[in-house]
Design a protein around this nucleic acid. Sequence first.
DNA 1: GCCAACGTTGGC
DNA 2: GCCAACGTTGGC
Length: 139
Amino acid sequence: MAHWLFKSEPSTWSWDDQVAQGDAGEEWDGVRNYQARNFMRDMKKGDTGFFYHSQSEKAVVGIVEVIAEAHPDSTTDDERWECVDIRALRPLARPVTLADAKARPDLSEMALLRNSRLSVQPVTEEEWRIVCDMGGVEP
DNA sequence: GCCAACGTTGGC
DNA sequence: GCCAACGTTGGC
């Protein structure tokens, strides 16, 4: 099972919005970047990911699960763009901030730190365990 | 609010 | 196919 990171501006789509969708989840639509789209195409049902708040908060706040694999993005007729569906699994006991992650030498290779503009990113098994541990949540 | 980094577009 | 111009994102 692979791990990922989904980035969102809380003012546009927040963790609370995601939680409100319950187990039905929601499309991760609106992505218009090939790299991010390609990562979504690689996702499998049951993969898990971090939900990251950009802008004001800059922290991983929750864990989500992929519940539907890549399909056309309903917000556009452009067939190039696809997205997955995700649902909220559980919040982190303590959000892991960007500053927290930067302070960890063992997270220095994380895509979040190396390419801050990528909105959907892969997370390695090791990074997954470290961030879950820092956040006080079961991996 | 600014600016650096990066992706995309379009002219040649 | 290259590269300059432009737009967007996100950290500070």
